[in-house]
Measured scan of single mutants.
Amino acid sequence: MPSETPQAEVGPTGCPHRSGPHSAKGSLEKGSPEDKEAKEPLWIRPDAPSRCTWQLGRPASESPHHHTAPAKSPKILPDILKKIGDTPMVRINKIGKKFGLKCELLAKCEFFNAGGSVKDRISLRMIEDAERDGTLKPGDTIIEPTSGNTGIGLALAAAVRGYRCIIVMPEKMSSEKVDVLRALGAEIVRTPTNARFDSPESHVGVAWRLKNEIPNSHILDQYRNASNPLAHYDTTADEILQQCDGKLDMLVASVGTGGTITGIARKLKEKCPGCRIIGVDPEGSILAEPEELNQTEQTTYEVEGIGYDFIPTVLDRTVVDKWFKSNDEEAFTFARMLIAQEGLLCGGSAGSTVAVAVKAAQELQEGQRCVVILPDSVRNYMTKFLSDRWMLQKGFLKEEDLTEKKPWWWHLRVQELGLSAPLTVLPTITCGHTIEILREKGFDQAPVVDEAGVILGMVTLGNMLSSLLAGKVQPSDQVGKVIYKQFKQIRLTDTLGRLSHILEMDHFALVV
Rank of each mutant, 00 (worst) to 15 (best):
T150E: 02
L154M: 05
V204E: 09
N212V: 10
L181A: 03
L124Y: 11
G115M: 07
S199G: 04
R276Y: 10
I166H: 06
R276G: 03
G246A: 02
N225R: 01
L136P: 03
A71K: 10
P41Q: 10
L81P: 07
L56W: 09
S50G: 06
H66T: 11
E131N: 08
D221P: 03
C52I: 03
P41A: 12
R58Y: 11
R91P: 08
C244A: 02
F99K: 09
S63G: 08
P200M: 15
L101F: 04
C275F: 07
P59R: 03
I143E: 04
L210K: 12
P64C: 04
A253I: 02
N212W: 08
P138K: 08
P70S: 14
M89V: 10
N149W: 00
D86C: 05
V178I: 02
S117Y: 04
L251N: 00
A253V: 11
R45P: 10
L268M: 06
A114I: 02
Q7G: 09
S227W: 02
W54T: 06
L251W: 01
G205Y: 07
I127Q: 05
R18K: 15
K119A: 05
I95W: 00
I122Q: 00
S27V: 14
S23M: 10
G85D: 07
P70W: 11
V178P: 06
C275H: 01
P64I: 10
E187K: 10
L230S: 08
H17Y: 13
A155T: 14
T5S: 14
P74L: 15
D86G: 13
T13S: 02
L210T: 05
T87D: 05
A231C: 11
R276L: 15
F197L: 09
E239I: 05
P88H: 04
P70T: 10
P12F: 06
E110C: 01
I122V: 04
A8C: 03
K75P: 08
I152Y: 01
S61D: 05
E34W: 11
D179A: 08
F99Y: 11
T262I: 04
F111P: 03
H67C: 10
V118D: 03
G153H: 03
A24H: 13
G139M: 06
K211I: 10
T257F: 00
L241D: 04
D238R: 12
K269A: 08
T193I: 09
I122S: 00
H67A: 07
Q7E: 13
W208L: 09
G259R: 00
M250P: 00
S3M: 11
T236V: 01
E128G: 01
T260R: 06
N216M: 01
G246F: 02
P74T: 14
P49N: 08
A107M: 03
H67G: 05
C15D: 14
S199F: 03
S199L: 07
N216K: 09
P12Y: 09
T146F: 02
P170E: 04
D198N: 15
A159D: 04
G85I: 04
H66Q: 11
R121I: 01
L124G: 06
Y233V: 00
L181S: 03
M169C: 03
P145Y: 01
E176Y: 01
V118S: 07
Y163K: 02
L106C: 11
S147G: 05
L268I: 09
Y163Q: 01
T13W: 01
T150R: 04
E34C: 06
S175G: 06
Q55S: 12
R164F: 04
A69R: 09
R182S: 08
I95A: 03
C275V: 12
P33T: 08
I188K: 05
K94C: 14
L56P: 11
R224I: 08
E201D: 10
T262V: 11
L56G: 04
A183N: 04
H203D: 05
P46W: 04
D198H: 06
T236Q: 01
T236D: 03
L154E: 02
H203Q: 11
K137H: 10
Y163F: 06
P16Q: 06
M89S: 00
L268T: 04
I84H: 07
R196E: 01
G205P: 09
P59F: 01
L154Y: 02
H65P: 05
I142C: 05
P59D: 10
K247F: 01
S19D: 09
A155H: 04
P78T: 11
S50E: 08
L136I: 09
A265K: 08
E29W: 14
K247I: 13
G20C: 03
E29H: 13
E187D: 09
L136G: 04
K108P: 01
R121H: 02
I166L: 13
